[in-house]
Design a protein around this nucleic acid. Structure first.
Lengths: 272, 272
DNA sequence: CCAATAATTTCATTAAATGATATGGAACAC
DNA sequence: GTGTTCCATATCATTTAATGAAATTATTGG
């Protein structure tokens, strides 16, 4: 991407009165980081790319190098530095998925009127971290903190969408399911291809759900969410229709976790 | 009414005192990031911590929020934002050694059940680029992005295995070690001959590790990896036994970097 | 060795950052 | 409810800190 616009003042010119951004130097510094993130780049190219003089570019870049945000190798140019690794790591720890996801879950619950769950993979089980009850008076027998089987819940299946078939088998064998292995694997393949998963009354009778994975900055699945309701409200057609909403919300949360299209999907680490 | 005066004169922070840098705003912005990295913090506390007025702090923090480096939640304050997750990940990929080495590190961590680190030489320090926690509940107090002494860590010693004795002395003198110079040099000679290095509770009490160098296409040491664990799990016998596994993995990574037996070892360039 | 390109430093000019003060807003107490 | 308080945001005259043209110093490659 390019967008090396003059930050806040971008639209100011037209109106004659704009946002006096007030931190030009900081913004330019961050622009430098962005430019370098696209790939190693030397000073002349960098200054050209940002439409800044070499002096200014050099001063900014040097400041960033001094702080470890960039590294500089003569004749090769600037690249991202260790400080960013460190901050990325810290941000990862500070980031509490539940608190971040909350508003999205509520939005989804409001839109669908059904119960929404958030969960992560914990060994061979799905651990439910949050729950937003829907408006319907259906009893969804789940509680935050509870563990459920992977193979027979939509949320569980969404969590392992990126695993390979050998791993799928292990999850299936760990706790089984009401459907046969062959059929189950067949469905998993379809789910993995589409990026979402269903639960067709496999775990609890009369309860169906639609689930989608949430990804972190590395593209790895870090959590999943699901919309559950009584089978009477969950026709095949409605489930199909929900997939868009569910994956959209999942994607929005992923973005807040630092995920971007660029990161895509990524194979999970073996075992837990 | 509260006084917004700048408190004490120079509180040089970690700056090398007289920094005629010329990018005050950028530096201050990065200071804000550092402060927030310590934990979520609201504006008044933040401005106090940085000895800046609320106006300035607010302007800087807002700029960072606008760019996704921070997130702001009213009443809670600022915390690190998704942009840092993304940049951390990109940085991780840009340094291609980590991304190449990742699977190998995971394999080693799984096989040994201990914590595995990857690091490179950065001046007179070892810079940790990646970490794969082991299965044991031992606390290894290290973080990605951190720097550790060369002379007293296994990883550090592995990084300088090819340097000459004069260089070894410099590294030793730079930060010392818990053992005397003579003994230390003697051990280094043995390590260099064998192609791996140990850390016998020199850096951190009760922590021992086995490390080996990773070589690039030219035969030069470009990185090193180490397996660390609590001393109770690291008998002399086990350490000896681990050397094979560790050097095998290091060699495998070296091969992926273009190294071959033919390239062998190669003296490093004289340092800065 | 010299030419060419990249990196760094210098310094007068001016635009951009600063911060005291004012305003707006949400939580809490009463 | 209404008052109180503390936090967040907007304003704007002052001055300081950022800017960039040009000069200087390293590096590289022929």
């Amino acid at each position: 991407m390019e967008s090396n616009r003059k930050i806040g003042a971008a639209d100011a010119e037209d109106e004659g009165k704009g946002t006096p951004s007030g931190s030009q130097t900081l913004f330019r510094g961050l622009d430098v980081i962005d430019a370098v993130a696209e790939g190693a780049i030397a000073l002349p190219a960098l200054s050209e790319r940002l439409s800044l003089t070499k002096s200014t570019t050099h001063r900014l870049a040097s400041a960033l190098v001094e702080r470890g945000y960039l590294t500089f190798v003569a004749r090769e140019g600037y690249s991202l530095g260790p400080k960013l690794l460190e901050l990325g790591w810290v941000a990862h720890q500070q980031m509490h998925i539940p608190s971040l996801a909350r508003p999205h879950l509520e939005q989804l619950a409001a839109a669908t009127e059904d119960t929404v769950h958030l969960g992560i993979l914990d060994g061979f089980q799905a651990l439910y971290l949050d729950k937003v009850p829907g408006r319907r008076r259906v009893v969804i027998g789940s509680r935050v903190g509870e563990r459920h089987p992977i193979a027979s819940t939509g949320l569980g299946k969404a969590l392992i969408l990126d695993h390979d078939e050998a791993a799928w088998r292990e999850f299936y064998e760990a706790q089984g399911s009401s459907v046969g292995l062959a059929v189950w694997l067949e469905r998993m393949r379809a789910y993995a291809a589409k990026g979402y998963a269903f639960d067709l009354e496999e775990n609890e009778d009369q309860i169906r759900c639609v689930a989608a994975p949430i990804r972190g900055a590395s593209g790895e699945i870090v959590a999943a969410l699901s919309v559950s309701s009584a089978a009477q409200y969950m026709s095949d057609a409605r489930m199909e229709g929900l997939t868009g909403q569910v994956t959209d919300i999942a994607t929005a949360i992923s973005r807040e976790l630092g995920w971007s299209e660029r990161a895509g999907r990524r194979r999970p680490r073996r075992k837990t």
